[in-house]
């Protein structure tokens, strides 16, 4: 019926094959790369030390020679779980505060897409983690799951406060030393002034000229020190 000129059709067919082939290869390579990329994303948080401690306490291997694993006191396991919850609280706070900033930055194009992916993954992970902690807590002590995070929150807040206090207190020795030195220098200055006053009035004037300079250096400084204390 139809006399098909196969030879003439060869060229368009080859064109179609090349076209479709290119698209297929491109999309396959692109997707594979994307998948590898997202699989290799670094986790948002580092290793969860507290969780590892808790889990290793829970699944302690029996020592060589003995049949049974050593018995861990309940209080130790509970303390380990509480520590784990405290770390979770720290992480969850970090995620909550970062979420809005991260999404607004992403919209503006100030941070990259992969950061957002990592962030979302961390968020999901933390949800699972919280659920797991609640279940573990209920398993150890029925009803504890409802309040474990409250206590963990208190502990975390306390720790933050304590860290700040320690930081301030670490300064004391330094400051004390400086004040001692300062007091000594001011004292010696005064003594010198007194001596000079005794020795003669004319010289006393020259000596006292240095003093206002010292006072002067301090007056404009009220602000920087105020700023420091606010930080």
């Amino acid at each position: 019926m139809f006399d098909i000129n196969w030879r003439g059709l060869l060229l368009p067919l080859a064109y179609l094959v090349v076209l479709v082939g290119t698209f297929v290869t491109f999309s396959r390579v692109y997707r594979k790369r994307k998948a590898i990329e997202s699989a290799n994303l670094a986790p948002w948080f580092g290793p969860h030390l507290q969780r590892n401690i808790y889990l290793s306490l829970l699944h302690l291997e029996p020592e060589e020679g003995s049949e049974k694993a050593p018995k861990i006191p309940d209080s130790v396991i509970r303390a380990a779980l509480l520590r784990r919850a405290v770390e979770d609280i720290r992480r969850i706070i970090q995620i909550r505060t970062a979420k809005q900033a991260c999404s607004s930055l992403l919209q503006r194009g100030s941070v990259g897409d992969d950061l957002w992916q990592r962030f979302q993954r961390a968020e999901k992970e933390m949800e699972e983690e919280l659920r797991d902690v609640v279940m573990e807590a209920n398993g150890l002590l029925p009803g504890w799951g409802q309040i474990i995070f409250q206590s963990a929150n208190e502990i975390a807040a306390n720790k933050v406060l304590r860290d700040r206090l320690d930081e301030v207190e670490a300064q004391t020795a330094n400051d004390k030393e400086w004040w001692e030195k300062r007091r000594a220098s001011v004292k010696s200055g005064f003594m010198k002034e007194l001596d000079e006053e005794e020795s003669g009035k004319g010289q006393a004037k020259a000596g006292s000229e240095d003093e206002p300079v010292l006072v002067d250096t301090n007056t404009p400084s009220a602000t920087p020190s105020g700023k420091k204390s606010k930080k």
Binding site: W178, R182, T217, N218, P220, S221, P224
Partner: peptide
């Protein structure tokens, strides 16, 4: 030996 710095303005 003052601890607070003198600003340029000061």
């Amino acid at each position: 030996d003052s601890r607070v710095h003198t600003s340029i303005q000061g």
